[in-house]
Simulated scan of single mutants.
Amino acid sequence: MAKILQANYMAKCIGCYSCMLACARTVRHSFSLQQSAIQIHTAGGLQSRFLADICRGCSEPACAKACHCGALLPRNGGGVRFIPEKCLGCQECVEACVVKTIRFDHTSNKPLICIQCGSCTRFCPHQVITMEVREDGR
């Protein structure tokens, strides 16, 4: 059974960005936080908590429906598979994402999109982000 990312424990987040670095390193082969498909940021203010912008693993992903070149394919259990070789850089997926977590990298002319690989979860020191089977079975 496929799993999807969950950020149910953000109160434990210390803002170390280990999850972002893991994503950038393992998926994009980069040491830049800008290359991460997951983004950690504060809600604002000096003592605010951290928030995670992550793919919600839609069971019927709008980004895949908007992709006319076949670079994004729905993944069993939710989310998408990304085939970079097929991507034309049209940015339709960025516009279609209902939670606005897909960003576009103008250097590579490809989207920065979460593929639900779980790299971020393995490097989170406080298990803030986890991979879980979706409760409703979608």
Rank of each mutant, 00 (worst) to 15 (best):
1 M>P: 12
5 L>A: 08
8 N>V: 00
11 A>E: 12
11 A>T: 03
12 K>V: 01
14 I>D: 03
14 I>W: 06
16 C>I: 11
16 C>A: 13
16 C>F: 12
19 C>V: 09
19 C>L: 06
20 M>S: 11
23 C>N: 04
24 A>I: 06
24 A>G: 05
24 A>P: 07
25 R>E: 04
27 V>G: 01
29 H>W: 13
29 H>D: 01
29 H>T: 01
29 H>S: 09
29 H>V: 01
30 S>F: 12
30 S>I: 12
35 Q>M: 15
37 A>M: 04
38 I>F: 03
38 I>A: 01
41 H>W: 12
42 T>K: 15
46 L>F: 14
47 Q>H: 13
49 R>V: 12
51 L>Y: 00
52 A>M: 02
53 D>C: 01
56 R>F: 00
57 G>E: 07
58 C>D: 00
58 C>W: 05
59 S>Y: 13
61 P>H: 14
61 P>V: 06
62 A>R: 05
64 A>G: 10
64 A>F: 10
66 A>N: 12
72 L>F: 12
73 L>Q: 15
74 P>M: 10
78 G>A: 04
82 F>I: 09
82 F>C: 04
84 P>A: 05
85 E>D: 15
85 E>P: 04
86 K>R: 15
87 C>N: 02
88 L>R: 14
88 L>H: 14
90 C>M: 09
95 E>C: 00
98 V>T: 13
98 V>A: 07
99 V>S: 07
99 V>L: 11
99 V>K: 07
99 V>P: 00
101 T>S: 08
102 I>W: 11
105 D>W: 13
106 H>L: 06
108 S>I: 09
108 S>Q: 13
108 S>F: 03
109 N>K: 15
111 P>G: 10
113 I>C: 02
113 I>P: 07
114 C>P: 07
114 C>V: 04
115 I>K: 01
116 Q>M: 10
117 C>I: 01
117 C>F: 11
118 G>W: 01
119 S>A: 15
121 T>N: 02
122 R>Q: 08
122 R>H: 05
127 Q>C: 02
132 E>H: 04
132 E>G: 07
132 E>Q: 15
133 V>K: 14
134 R>E: 02
136 D>W: 11
136 D>Y: 08
136 D>T: 11
137 G>C: 04
138 R>S: 13
138 R>T: 14
138 R>N: 09
